[in-house]
């Protein structure tokens, strides 16, 4: 057989089998994409930003390897406190490996915590600019978590991290209305708790945050009672203290001392835990009946007035806003 004839047969065979395998491969690709086994197409802007060499490697089926290298580069930027570079690098990393929870968490942590703390203490900048940089870093950290959650809705740690960020007393002012933040945090914890494998503390934190939202006290109280009745593992001091305050909110005429002893088990434990709870003013927990219970407990124990926590000025608490006052940064 002539060479051209053989080559023709091969070309024809390639085209015919190509046409035959096209629908099969298309179905298999769709199946693998649905199962999360095949990455989505890398968009052009990502290809341009990672550079020619890395793009070639990424297109050759090694996206996670490129993401690993970029993570090393981001760590270098972090040590040099080049926050915009850190953010830009993590944008690339999560484009390359959108289903790696670690990258979303780390990207958010760098912006919301490390960059925010840096700007808070950066005395070289005017106070107004520092405050804006601090605020926008925290908001960017939240935005990263939101993007991560939309990519990995079943990753409970992302929901929990979102809750932690939204209710953090050092960050909450960056989000505007604190009550709206607490409500958003409660919703994050609730979503985390619905996911299989989520730790039980997610529901406790949902309770703690919901209790701080005006108008949602009844809902929070129902959840607190449910958790308290469910298991002694939930009987953390904070849960007992918040539950006490909400019970007193519902029934202000109740015997505060009796309720406190009933919840905490002993008079000594009640006075100790409620005293500590009373001092957590910056966390904005409800304090209905706490002062009354403490007074009654102190009276019963014969504690001198000078030693009563409720008679002492609230502890000096560092307020992040102080850092933005004119002059050098202040620390506690």
């Amino acid at each position: 057989m002539k060479v051209w004839k053989r080559t023709g047969i091969v070309a024809l065979a390639v085209i015919v089998t190509g046409a035959a395998r096209m629908p099969v491969e298309h179905r298999l690709t769709a199946e693998m994409r649905a199962a999360g086994l095949m990455p989505a197409t890398l968009d052009i802007s990502t290809r341009e930003r990672i550079g020619q060499t890395s793009a070639a490697v990424a297109l050759g089926g090694l996206r996670t390897l490129v993401a690993t290298f970029l993570n090393l580069r981001a760590f270098g930027f972090f040590t040099e406190q080049r926050w915009s570079n850190v953010d830009e690098t993590y944008r690339l990393i999560v484009d390359l490996a959108p289903r790696t929870r670690y990258y979303w968490e780390t990207a958010s942590w760098h912006q919301a915590y490390n960059a925010a703390a840096y700007y808070q203490n950066q005395s070289a900048l005017p106070a107004l600019r520092r405050r804006e940089a601090w605020r926008s870093s925290i908001v960017r950290g939240l935005e990263i978590l939101d993007q991560g959650i939309s990519n990995m809705p079943d990753a409970w740690p992302l929901h929990v991290q979102r809750g932690f960020l939204l209710r953090d007393p050092n960050k909450i002012r960056a989000f505007g209305d604190p009550e709206a933040s607490f409500l958003a945090a409660a919703e994050s914890y609730a979503r985390a708790a619905e996911i299989e494998g989520a730790p039980e503390y997610a529901r406790r934190f949902q309770f703690y945050t919901l209790a701080r939202v005006s108008g949602r006290e009844a809902e929070a109280l129902a959840l607190g009672r449910e958790l308290h009745a469910e298991s002694t593992a939930h009987h953390a001091p904070t849960l007992l203290s918040v539950l006490f305050a909400l019970e007193m909110w519902e029934n202000p005429e109740a015997d505060a001392k009796a309720l406190a002893i009933d919840l905490f088990g002993t008079e000594e434990r009640a006075v100790e835990q409620l005293g500590l709870y009373w001092q957590r003013v910056r966390e904005r927990f409800p304090t209905h009946g706490v002062a009354r219970a403490l007074e009654a407990l102190y009276d019963a124990r014969g504690t001198p007035a000078s030693e009563r926590i409720i008679n002492q000025p609230p502890p000096r608490i560092y307020d992040p806003e102080e850092a933005f006052a004119p002059g050098p940064p202040q620390h506690d």
Binding site: A19, M38, G61, L62
Partner: peptide, 18 residues
């Protein structure tokens, strides 16, 4: 599509690492 093999099909490495 007709001539070349689909190498992306075999690229489950990234997903497994994730």
């Amino acid at each position: 599509s007709l001539i070349l093999p689909d190498f992306q099909l075999f690229n489950v490495v990234d997903a497994v690492i994730e």
